[in-house]
Design a protein around this nucleic acid. Sequence first.
DNA 1: TTTTTTAACTTGTATTTACAAGTCAATTGT
DNA 2: ACAATTGACTTGTAAATACAAGTTAAAAAA
Lengths: 238, 238
Amino acid sequence: MAEEIKVPQHKKIYEILRKHILTGIYEEGSLLPSENELCAVHNITRPTVRQALEALVNDGFILKKQGKGSIVRKPPQKIGILSISGTASAIGNQYLQTQILQRPQIIPWPDNFPFDLTEIEQESGCIYMERLRLVDEQPVFYDINHIPNINVPRLSSRSFENKSLFETLRTQYQIEIKGGEQKLKAIKADRLIGQLLNLSVGEPVLSIERKLNTNREGFHIYSTIWFNSAKHSIYGTF
Amino acid sequence: MAEEIKVPQHKKIYEILRKHILTGIYEEGSLLPSENELCAVHNITRPTVRQALEALVNDGFILKKQGKGSIVRKPPQKIGILSISGTASAIGNQYLQTQILQRPQIIPWPDNFPFDLTEIEQESGCIYMERLRLVDEQPVFYDINHIPNINVPRLSSRSFENKSLFETLRTQYQIEIKGGEQKLKAIKADRLIGQLLNLSVGEPVLSIERKLNTNREGFHIYSTIWFNSAKHSIYGTF
DNA sequence: TTTTTTAACTTGTATTTACAAGTCAATTGT
DNA sequence: ACAATTGACTTGTAAATACAAGTTAAAAAA
C-alpha cells in the first residue's frame, strides 16, 4: 500500500524551476538564483543542484555562462506540435481549449492497430481517449490516443480538461516523452472528421500518426491527429 | 607560446568513446565497459566518467540501464524530411529521382516573400531553383528554394540532378543546416500543382514552408514543398 | 579623471566517499 | 529437478570538499 513514489531531489528541483520559468516567476533573459543560493534555499548540495540545472539546459529552459549565471530562456524553442512535446503547447495554450469527447477508458487494443505492439502492451490492454481542441471556439484538431495500461493507476479517472495529457503523465507518473516517429498525410475529410472539424466532406485535412517513445522501456503512446488547416497551420522548430 | 588548449577529461573520454562507437569498435546493441572499468582504464573517477556518458546519452550514442550497463546505439538518430536534414533522405534516396525544373538562377527576392529577411540577405539577391522529385517515375513532391546569394560562388552553375542540394552545400561550401522552423498545411491542389504532381485539381496536398538556419550567421535557406500524399506519407523521427 | 588591480562573486572541473536499487547468474535448500 | 536466495556485479543518487576559470564592480593607483 501507500506505495511511496520516490522522486530524486534533482528531479524535484528541476520541476520547481521549470514551473517557475514557465509561469513567469523568472523572466526571460534574467538570471536564475546562483547555484549556491539554490543549495541554501532547498537545502541540498551543489552537485544535486547542478544535475537539475543540466537537465534544464538540455531541455532548453536555461543557458549557462561561466562566471555569469544561468540565463532564463523562456519559450523552450521547440515544442511545436511536430516536435517532442505534447500537442498542447502548439498554438500557445492560452487560446487552446480542450473538449474531451471520450473520457479515458480501458479497452483492448484495436484489431487493426497500425503499429506493432510489444507483448506486454498487447496483454495489458490500452487506455483510449478522444479529444477535440478548439481555438476561438472553432475546432482545430481532433486526436485519439492509445496508451498502454501498464502501471498508470487511476489514469482513466483523471480529467484532462485543462491540462495536457503529457503534463499529467510527466508529473504524476514520471513518464517522459523521449522521441518518436510520425507519418504525415494530407487527406480528404470524411463525414466524421468533417463534422468534428466543421469542414465539408472532401476538404483537405492534415493527418498525423505518431508513436512516441518514453523513458519507460516498451511503453509507447500512440496518437492520431486530424488537423484542420484552413485557418491555422502547424508550426514547428527543429 | 604553444597556447596549450585545455580539454577537460570528461570531454576527452567522450570523444574517445564516441569515436570507438562510430568506428565500430563497440558494436550496436553491445555493452560499453562499465563505469568502474572506464575509471580504471583512463585513470579518472566515476563522476567524471558519468559526465562523459551523460553527454553520450544526450547525443543518442548510448542508452543506460540501471543494473545492466550502457548499451551502444550506433545510428545517432535518423533524419527524415521533417527533421534537420534536407529533403533528400526522405524515402531512401535510392528510389528518389530528381528533375530540375528551374536551374539555379540569381534573381531578386520576391516581393511578397513570406519570411522576414536580414539586410544582407535583402541586398544580395537570391538563388532560385525548382525541383520535382519522383518515386517509381511518379511525382511525389515539388519544391522551390530560395538561397541567399552570399559567398556561394558558382552555386548557380552547379548541377543537382543526382545529389542533394544540402549535400552540395555542406561539402562544397561548408554550409551546414543547424535547425529551422516550418509551417505545415493541407491544401487543395491548384492547376499548377495538380499538373506537376499528377493530381486532379482539389485533391489534398501537403504543403511545407520552411526556413532553415545554417552555421553561417544570418544565412538562411527558404523552401516551399508541395507533397503528394496519395501513395506516400512523410515520415520523420524526432 | 582614467586606468589598473583587487576582491567577491559566478559556473566548471574533479576527487572521494557512501549507500540505494536494478540485474543476473551461481549457489543453496527443498 | 526445481525454486528461492544470495552475492557480485551494474548504474542511480547524494553528500562534502577543493580548486580552476570567467565576470563584474568596487577599490586603488596612475
